[in-house]
Simulated assay, not measured.
Amino acid sequence: MSFVLPPECVLRPASDSDIWEIRKLVFSAKLDPTQLRWQQFSVIECDKKIVACGQLRSFSGAQELSSLVVLPAWRKQGLGSYLVKHLIQQANQPLYLECASWLEQFYTQFGFVSISWREVPSPLKEKFRFTQFATKLIPLISLKVMQYRGFETPTDGNK
């Protein structure tokens, strides 16, 4: 699966001056606005305007792919896919995400699989507990917790 950025776009690490644009993107998508640290974000800039962002948050023994947003005018061009692939490549611990159930198929194409609550590592359970509780209160909201399993870890020295 190969994704290419349009020629007018560049992927780069976020800088401190990007935080307000990142916040606007995250708020516009109605995503969790807490714990937005520009140092954890990658952004896609097209024609000198940030049009997509995503962050890789580190926890004890796990990482979370979160705050993935692409401006509506730039969707359906592979920017979100490009950003997901980039963040997967940057991960150096087991990688998880929490998403609306209608996004499950999108993330599955990259090697993420839905997991049960008991499979979620403790540090992420603390973070996801509120949203999982909210789905019990408001059944219209359906969230999935997914783990990246798109790579094979060699079990012996022959690989």
Rank of each mutant, 00 (worst) to 15 (best):
M1L: 13
S2H: 15
F3Q: 11
F3V: 11
V4K: 15
L5A: 05
P7R: 14
P7Y: 05
C9R: 14
V10R: 15
R12L: 02
P13N: 11
S17W: 01
D18N: 07
I19S: 03
W20R: 14
W20D: 09
R23E: 00
R23I: 10
V26M: 01
V26H: 13
F27C: 12
S28M: 05
A29I: 03
K30E: 00
L31C: 08
L31Y: 10
D32N: 15
D32I: 04
P33G: 07
P33Q: 04
W38F: 13
Q39H: 14
Q39T: 07
Q40M: 05
F41H: 07
F41T: 01
I44C: 03
E45I: 01
C46M: 06
D47W: 15
K48Y: 14
K49I: 04
I50L: 02
I50A: 02
V51I: 10
A52C: 10
G54D: 01
Q55W: 13
L56K: 05
S58T: 12
S60V: 09
S60P: 03
S60F: 14
G61C: 07
A62I: 04
E64A: 03
L65K: 11
S66H: 08
L68K: 09
L68P: 09
L68S: 02
L68R: 08
L68F: 08
P72S: 13
A73K: 14
R75W: 14
R75L: 05
K76A: 11
K76P: 02
L79P: 14
S81A: 11
K85H: 10
K85V: 03
K85P: 01
H86Q: 08
H86Y: 06
H86P: 05
I88A: 06
Q93H: 01
Q93T: 01
Q93S: 06
P94Y: 00
L95Y: 09
L97A: 02
E98Y: 00
C99N: 01
C99L: 00
A100M: 00
W102H: 10
L103H: 10
L103G: 01
L103Q: 00
Q105G: 07
Q105M: 06
Q109C: 06
F110A: 06
F110W: 04
F110T: 06
G111L: 04
F112G: 03
S114G: 06
I115C: 07
S116V: 01
W117H: 12
E119Q: 14
E119R: 09
E119M: 05
V120K: 04
S122F: 12
S122I: 11
S122A: 12
S122M: 12
P123T: 04
L124S: 08
L124E: 07
L124N: 07
E126K: 14
E126A: 13
K127T: 10
F128D: 00
R129H: 15
Q132F: 07
Q132T: 08
F133S: 08
F133A: 07
F133N: 11
A134W: 15
A134V: 11
A134D: 09
K136S: 12
I141K: 10
I141A: 14
S142C: 09
S142I: 08
S142Y: 00
L143F: 13
K144N: 12
V145D: 03
M146G: 05
M146L: 08
Q147R: 14
Q147E: 10
Y148I: 00
R149F: 01
R149D: 11
G150I: 02
G150C: 03
G150F: 05
F151L: 12
P154I: 01
D156P: 08
N158Q: 12
N158C: 07
